[in-house]
Protein backbone atom coordinates (compact mmCIF):
# COMPACT_ATOMS: atom_id res chain seq x y z
CA UNK A 1 0.00 0.00 0.00
CA UNK A 2 2.83 2.32 0.90
CA UNK A 3 4.15 1.81 -2.60
CA UNK A 4 1.04 3.33 -4.11
CA UNK A 5 1.49 6.49 -2.07
CA UNK A 6 5.00 6.92 -3.41
CA UNK A 7 3.89 6.47 -6.96
CA UNK A 8 1.26 9.10 -6.66
CA UNK A 9 3.45 11.77 -5.05
CA UNK A 10 5.88 12.44 -7.91
CA UNK A 11 3.45 11.28 -10.56
CA UNK A 12 0.75 13.62 -9.28
CA UNK A 13 3.14 16.52 -9.10
CA UNK A 14 4.28 15.82 -12.60
CA UNK A 15 0.72 15.73 -13.85
CA UNK A 16 -0.05 18.98 -12.07
CA UNK A 17 2.97 20.63 -13.66
CA UNK A 18 1.86 19.46 -17.08
CA UNK A 19 -1.60 20.79 -16.42
CA UNK A 20 -0.30 24.14 -15.26
CA UNK A 21 1.85 24.36 -18.31
CA UNK A 22 -0.99 23.62 -20.69
CA UNK A 23 -3.21 26.14 -18.90
CA UNK A 24 -0.51 28.73 -19.30
CA UNK A 25 -0.19 27.86 -22.96
CA UNK A 26 -3.89 28.16 -23.45
CA UNK A 27 -3.86 31.54 -21.78
CA UNK A 28 -0.99 32.72 -23.93
CA UNK A 29 -2.69 31.46 -27.06
CA UNK A 30 -5.66 33.72 -26.37
CA UNK A 31 -3.60 36.68 -25.18
CA UNK A 32 -3.07 38.23 -28.64
CA UNK A 33 -6.82 38.53 -29.20
CA UNK A 34 -7.18 40.16 -25.80
CA UNK A 35 -4.35 42.55 -26.54
CA UNK A 36 -5.89 43.48 -29.88
CA UNK A 37 -9.25 44.19 -28.25
CA UNK A 38 -7.60 46.18 -25.49
CA UNK A 39 -5.60 48.25 -27.97
CA UNK A 40 -8.66 48.99 -30.08
CA UNK A 41 -10.57 50.19 -27.03
CA UNK A 42 -7.60 52.14 -25.71
CA UNK A 43 -6.90 53.92 -28.98
CA UNK A 44 -10.56 54.62 -29.57
CA UNK A 45 -10.48 56.57 -26.34
CA UNK A 46 -7.15 58.33 -26.53
CA UNK A 47 -6.48 58.70 -30.26
CA UNK A 48 -8.74 61.15 -32.01
CA UNK A 49 -10.09 59.81 -35.26
CA UNK A 50 -9.06 56.24 -34.59
CA UNK A 51 -12.58 54.94 -34.30
CA UNK A 52 -13.98 56.12 -37.61
CA UNK A 53 -14.93 54.67 -40.94
CA UNK A 54 -12.16 56.47 -42.80
CA UNK A 55 -9.61 55.19 -40.37
CA UNK A 56 -11.01 51.68 -40.64
CA UNK A 57 -10.40 51.92 -44.35
CA UNK A 58 -6.94 53.21 -43.67
CA UNK A 59 -6.28 50.33 -41.34
CA UNK A 60 -7.41 47.83 -43.93
CA UNK A 61 -5.14 49.46 -46.46
CA UNK A 62 -2.18 49.52 -44.13
CA UNK A 63 -2.79 45.92 -43.18
CA UNK A 64 -2.45 44.56 -46.72
CA UNK A 65 1.30 44.47 -47.28
CA UNK A 66 2.42 43.47 -43.77
CA UNK A 67 -0.21 40.73 -43.75
CA UNK A 68 0.99 39.10 -46.96
CA UNK A 69 4.59 39.39 -45.85
CA UNK A 70 3.90 37.84 -42.48
CA UNK A 71 1.81 35.05 -44.02
CA UNK A 72 4.87 34.17 -46.04
CA UNK A 73 7.07 34.17 -42.97
CA UNK A 74 4.53 32.27 -40.85
CA UNK A 75 5.36 28.92 -42.39
CA UNK A 76 9.07 29.60 -42.23
CA UNK A 77 8.83 30.46 -38.55
CA UNK A 78 6.42 27.60 -37.89
CA UNK A 79 9.13 25.18 -38.86
CA UNK A 80 11.57 26.95 -36.59
CA UNK A 81 13.55 28.90 -39.18
CA UNK A 82 13.70 32.58 -40.01
CA UNK A 83 14.13 34.49 -43.21
CA UNK A 84 15.44 37.97 -43.71
CA UNK A 85 15.64 37.95 -47.50
CA UNK A 86 12.45 39.96 -48.09
CA UNK A 87 14.37 43.11 -47.28
CA UNK A 88 16.27 43.04 -50.54
CA UNK A 89 14.11 40.66 -52.51
CA UNK A 90 10.85 42.61 -52.28
CA UNK A 91 12.67 45.73 -53.43
CA UNK A 92 14.12 43.78 -56.32
CA UNK A 93 10.71 42.44 -57.36
CA UNK A 94 9.17 45.90 -57.16
CA UNK A 95 12.01 47.41 -59.16
CA UNK A 96 11.94 44.94 -62.04
CA UNK A 97 8.17 44.85 -62.09
CA UNK A 98 8.03 48.64 -62.48
CA UNK A 99 10.50 48.35 -65.32
CA UNK A 100 8.32 45.85 -67.15
CA UNK A 101 4.96 47.58 -67.04
CA UNK A 102 4.36 50.98 -68.63
CA UNK A 103 6.88 53.19 -66.88
CA UNK A 104 8.92 56.33 -67.00
CA UNK A 105 12.23 54.70 -67.87
CA UNK A 106 11.66 52.47 -70.86
CA UNK A 107 9.09 51.49 -73.45
CA UNK A 108 8.04 48.18 -71.92
CA UNK A 109 4.39 47.32 -71.63
CA UNK A 110 4.04 43.79 -70.44
CA UNK A 111 1.18 44.37 -68.04
CA UNK A 112 0.31 41.27 -66.05
CA UNK A 113 3.07 39.27 -67.67
CA UNK A 114 5.51 41.67 -66.05
CA UNK A 115 4.04 40.95 -62.65
CA UNK A 116 4.17 37.26 -63.31
CA UNK A 117 7.84 37.43 -64.29
CA UNK A 118 8.64 39.47 -61.19
CA UNK A 119 6.85 37.06 -58.87
CA UNK A 120 8.45 34.05 -60.52
CA UNK A 121 11.83 35.72 -60.04
CA UNK A 122 11.10 36.01 -56.33
CA UNK A 123 10.10 32.36 -56.15
CA UNK A 124 13.30 31.37 -57.93
CA UNK A 125 15.42 33.31 -55.48
CA UNK A 126 13.77 31.85 -52.39
CA UNK A 127 13.95 28.42 -53.98
CA UNK A 128 17.68 28.84 -54.44
CA UNK A 129 18.21 30.05 -50.90
CA UNK A 130 16.03 27.14 -49.75
CA UNK A 131 18.26 24.69 -51.58
CA UNK A 132 21.37 26.30 -50.13
CA UNK A 133 19.84 25.95 -46.68
CA UNK A 134 18.67 22.37 -47.12
CA UNK A 135 21.62 20.94 -49.00
CA UNK A 136 24.34 23.13 -47.59
CA UNK A 137 23.03 22.76 -44.03
CA UNK A 138 23.43 26.47 -43.42
CA UNK A 139 21.05 28.23 -41.04
CA UNK A 140 18.30 30.03 -42.94
CA UNK A 141 18.78 33.45 -41.46
CA UNK A 142 22.43 33.56 -42.46
CA UNK A 143 21.68 32.47 -46.01
CA UNK A 144 18.78 34.87 -46.31
CA UNK A 145 20.84 37.69 -44.83
CA UNK A 146 23.43 37.34 -47.57
CA UNK A 147 20.78 36.77 -50.23
CA UNK A 148 18.97 39.89 -49.11
CA UNK A 149 22.10 41.92 -49.58
CA UNK A 150 22.73 40.49 -53.03
CA UNK A 151 19.18 41.14 -54.18
CA UNK A 152 19.24 44.64 -52.80
CA UNK A 153 22.32 45.23 -54.92
CA UNK A 154 20.58 43.89 -58.01
CA UNK A 155 17.54 46.03 -57.28
CA UNK A 156 19.57 49.22 -57.16
CA UNK A 157 21.50 48.13 -60.19
CA UNK A 158 18.37 47.41 -62.21
CA UNK A 159 17.28 51.04 -62.32
CA UNK A 160 20.59 52.81 -61.73
CA UNK A 161 19.85 55.97 -59.87
CA UNK A 162 16.34 57.05 -60.61
CA UNK A 163 13.65 54.44 -59.89
CA UNK A 164 11.05 53.81 -62.58
CA UNK A 165 7.67 55.45 -62.06
CA UNK A 166 4.72 53.24 -62.88
CA UNK A 167 2.62 54.79 -65.62
CA UNK A 168 0.31 51.88 -66.28
CA UNK A 169 -3.09 53.26 -65.47
CA UNK A 170 -4.45 49.96 -64.34
CA UNK A 171 -1.88 49.79 -61.61
CA UNK A 172 -1.97 53.43 -60.63
CA UNK A 173 -5.73 53.24 -60.07
CA UNK A 174 -5.32 49.94 -58.31
CA UNK A 175 -3.36 51.52 -55.49
CA UNK A 176 -6.12 53.98 -54.67
CA UNK A 177 -9.27 52.17 -55.70
CA UNK A 178 -11.58 50.18 -53.51
CA UNK A 179 -14.55 47.92 -53.87
CA UNK A 180 -17.32 47.95 -51.25
CA UNK A 181 -15.15 50.26 -49.22
CA UNK A 182 -12.29 47.80 -49.05
CA UNK A 183 -9.11 48.70 -50.94
CA UNK A 184 -8.14 46.40 -53.81
CA UNK A 185 -4.82 45.54 -52.28
CA UNK A 186 -6.57 44.37 -49.15
CA UNK A 187 -8.55 41.89 -51.23
CA UNK A 188 -5.30 40.40 -52.42
CA UNK A 189 -4.12 40.12 -48.84
CA UNK A 190 -7.35 38.51 -47.71
CA UNK A 191 -7.22 36.05 -50.59
CA UNK A 192 -3.70 35.15 -49.56
CA UNK A 193 -4.93 34.65 -46.04
CA UNK A 194 -7.57 32.21 -47.23
CA UNK A 195 -5.00 30.30 -49.25
CA UNK A 196 -2.62 30.22 -46.30
CA UNK A 197 -5.43 29.02 -44.06
CA UNK A 198 -6.23 26.17 -46.42
CA UNK A 199 -2.54 25.31 -46.69
CA UNK A 200 -2.15 25.09 -42.96
CA UNK A 201 -5.32 23.30 -42.00
CA UNK A 202 -6.46 21.41 -45.04
CA UNK A 203 -3.32 19.99 -46.57
CA UNK A 204 -0.66 17.51 -45.56
CA UNK A 205 1.88 20.26 -46.10
CA UNK A 206 0.41 22.19 -43.17
CA UNK A 207 0.67 19.24 -40.81
CA UNK A 208 4.17 18.44 -41.93
CA UNK A 209 5.40 21.99 -41.38
CA UNK A 210 3.94 21.83 -37.89
CA UNK A 211 5.61 18.49 -37.28
CA UNK A 212 9.01 19.77 -38.42
CA UNK A 213 8.72 22.78 -36.16
CA UNK A 214 7.59 20.75 -33.19
CA UNK A 215 10.33 18.17 -33.45
CA UNK A 216 12.24 17.51 -36.61
CA UNK A 217 13.51 14.19 -35.32
CA UNK A 218 10.01 12.88 -34.71
CA UNK A 219 8.84 14.25 -38.04
CA UNK A 220 11.55 12.29 -39.76
CA UNK A 221 10.59 9.12 -37.91
CA UNK A 222 6.95 9.56 -38.83
CA UNK A 223 7.97 9.58 -42.46
CA UNK A 224 7.69 13.25 -43.31
CA UNK A 225 9.83 14.20 -46.28
CA UNK A 226 11.69 16.94 -44.46
CA UNK A 227 13.67 18.40 -47.34
CA UNK A 228 10.71 18.53 -49.70
CA UNK A 229 8.48 20.18 -47.10
CA UNK A 230 11.12 22.77 -46.33
CA UNK A 231 11.56 23.46 -50.00
CA UNK A 232 7.82 24.02 -50.40
CA UNK A 233 7.89 26.46 -47.51
CA UNK A 234 10.46 28.51 -49.39
CA UNK A 235 8.35 28.42 -52.54
CA UNK A 236 5.42 29.80 -50.57
CA UNK A 237 7.67 32.46 -49.11
CA UNK A 238 8.71 33.38 -52.64
CA UNK A 239 5.09 33.77 -53.71
CA UNK A 240 4.42 36.07 -50.77
CA UNK A 241 7.54 38.15 -51.22
CA UNK A 242 6.78 38.43 -54.92
CA UNK A 243 3.31 39.71 -54.20
CA UNK A 244 4.58 42.06 -51.54
CA UNK A 245 7.10 43.51 -53.97
CA UNK A 246 4.36 44.01 -56.51
CA UNK A 247 1.95 45.52 -54.00
CA UNK A 248 4.66 47.76 -52.60
CA UNK A 249 5.53 49.08 -56.04
CA UNK A 250 1.88 49.70 -56.86
CA UNK A 251 1.34 51.46 -53.55
CA UNK A 252 4.42 53.61 -53.96
CA UNK A 253 3.88 54.23 -57.67
CA UNK A 254 7.48 53.37 -58.43
CA UNK A 255 9.80 50.42 -58.22
CA UNK A 256 12.60 51.12 -55.81
CA UNK A 257 14.67 49.24 -53.32
CA UNK A 258 12.99 51.07 -50.45
CA UNK A 259 9.94 48.83 -50.82
CA UNK A 260 11.81 46.16 -48.96
CA UNK A 261 13.12 48.27 -46.14
CA UNK A 262 11.04 48.23 -43.02
CA UNK A 263 9.19 45.15 -44.19
CA UNK A 264 10.77 42.12 -42.58
CA UNK A 265 10.86 43.51 -39.11
CA UNK A 266 7.14 44.35 -38.79
CA UNK A 267 6.39 40.98 -40.38
CA UNK A 268 8.43 39.04 -37.84
CA UNK A 269 6.85 41.18 -35.14
CA UNK A 270 3.38 40.31 -36.44
CA UNK A 271 4.09 36.61 -36.55
CA UNK A 272 5.61 36.51 -33.09
CA UNK A 273 3.12 38.85 -31.44
CA UNK A 274 0.32 36.74 -32.88
CA UNK A 275 1.62 33.84 -30.84
CA UNK A 276 3.64 31.81 -33.31
CA UNK A 277 6.67 30.54 -31.49
CA UNK A 278 10.08 31.37 -32.91
CA UNK A 279 11.21 27.89 -32.01
CA UNK A 280 8.53 26.50 -34.30
CA UNK A 281 5.60 24.12 -34.06
CA UNK A 282 3.20 26.49 -32.39
CA UNK A 283 0.78 29.05 -33.80
CA UNK A 284 -0.16 29.59 -37.41
CA UNK A 285 -1.83 31.81 -39.94
CA UNK A 286 -4.77 32.82 -37.76
CA UNK A 287 -2.32 34.00 -35.12
CA UNK A 288 -0.51 35.92 -37.81
CA UNK A 289 -3.70 37.69 -38.85
CA UNK A 290 -4.23 38.82 -35.28
CA UNK A 291 -0.57 39.77 -34.94
CA UNK A 292 -0.57 41.79 -38.15
CA UNK A 293 -3.69 43.59 -36.94
CA UNK A 294 -2.01 44.43 -33.64
CA UNK A 295 1.05 45.84 -35.36
CA UNK A 296 -1.04 47.79 -37.86
CA UNK A 297 -3.29 49.21 -35.17
CA UNK A 298 -0.31 50.34 -33.12
CA UNK A 299 1.43 51.96 -36.06
CA UNK A 300 -1.77 53.66 -37.13
CA UNK A 301 -2.50 54.97 -33.67
CA UNK A 302 1.05 56.22 -33.19
CA UNK A 303 0.61 58.39 -36.26
CA UNK A 304 -2.75 59.64 -35.05
CA UNK A 305 -1.24 60.42 -31.69
CA UNK A 306 1.38 62.51 -33.43
CA UNK A 307 4.30 60.34 -32.43
CA UNK A 308 7.33 60.70 -34.66
CA UNK A 309 7.37 58.03 -37.35
CA UNK A 310 10.95 57.33 -36.36
CA UNK A 311 9.72 55.97 -33.07
CA UNK A 312 7.53 53.35 -34.69
CA UNK A 313 10.41 51.02 -35.32
CA UNK A 314 11.61 51.36 -31.77
CA UNK A 315 8.15 50.56 -30.45
CA UNK A 316 8.02 47.47 -32.62
CA UNK A 317 11.43 46.50 -31.34
CA UNK A 318 10.27 46.64 -27.76
CA UNK A 319 7.05 44.78 -28.51
CA UNK A 320 8.85 41.96 -30.20
CA UNK A 321 11.30 41.52 -27.36
CA UNK A 322 8.47 41.45 -24.84
CA UNK A 323 6.45 39.00 -26.93
CA UNK A 324 9.37 36.64 -27.44
CA UNK A 325 10.47 36.87 -23.83
CA UNK A 326 6.99 35.92 -22.65
CA UNK A 327 6.37 33.12 -25.10
CA UNK A 328 9.77 31.44 -25.17
CA UNK A 329 10.47 28.53 -22.84
CA UNK A 330 12.61 29.56 -19.89
CA UNK A 331 15.17 27.62 -17.96
CA UNK A 332 18.62 28.52 -16.84
CA UNK A 333 20.31 25.67 -18.64
CA UNK A 334 18.45 25.99 -21.92
CA UNK A 335 20.70 26.68 -24.85
CA UNK A 336 19.66 29.69 -26.89
CA UNK A 337 21.83 30.99 -29.67
Amino acid sequence: MEKQVHVSRIGEEFKQEMKKQSQRERFISWAPVGILAFLVVLFSIIAQGFFSLTNLQNLLKQLAIPLVMSLGLTFVILMGSTDLSAQGLAGFVGAIMALMVVNSKNANNMGFLGILIAVVAAILVTAISGIIHIKGKLPTFMVSYAVSSIMQGFAVLSYKGEPALIRDEFFTTMSQGSFLGIPYLTYIALAMFVIAYVLQFKTRFGSYVMAIGDNEGIAKNIGVNIDLTKFKVFLWLGVCIGLVGFMGAVRLGRGEVGIGSNLVFPAITSVVVGGTSLSGGKGGVVNTLVGAMIVTVINNALVLLGVSPYVQQAVQGMIIIAAVAISIPHGKNLIVK
Binding site: R204, S207, Y208, A211, D214, A219, I222, G223, V224, K282
Partner: peptide
Protein backbone atom coordinates in the same frame (compact mmCIF):
# COMPACT_ATOMS: atom_id res chain seq x y z
CA UNK B 1 2.95 16.71 -32.60
CA UNK B 2 1.41 18.94 -29.96
CA UNK B 3 -0.35 21.45 -32.18
CA UNK B 4 -2.02 18.97 -34.49
CA UNK B 5 -5.32 17.29 -33.77
CA UNK B 6 -5.67 13.76 -32.50
CA UNK B 7 -6.81 12.61 -35.92
CA UNK B 8 -3.94 14.36 -37.70
CA UNK B 9 -1.53 12.70 -35.34
CA UNK B 10 -3.02 9.26 -35.80
CA UNK B 11 -2.82 9.51 -39.57
CA UNK B 12 0.29 11.62 -40.06
CA UNK B 13 2.44 10.21 -42.81
CA UNK B 14 -0.46 7.98 -43.91
CA UNK B 15 -2.99 10.53 -45.13
CA UNK B 16 -3.21 9.32 -48.73
CA UNK B 17 -6.62 7.78 -48.33
CA UNK B 18 -8.09 11.09 -47.17
CA UNK B 19 -6.52 13.35 -49.76
CA UNK B 20 -8.64 14.54 -52.62
CA UNK B 21 -7.51 17.30 -54.98
CA UNK B 22 -4.55 17.92 -52.68
CA UNK B 23 -6.89 18.70 -49.80
CA UNK B 24 -7.32 16.53 -46.77
Amino acid sequence: IMNLTVAQNIYIGREEQYVKHALV
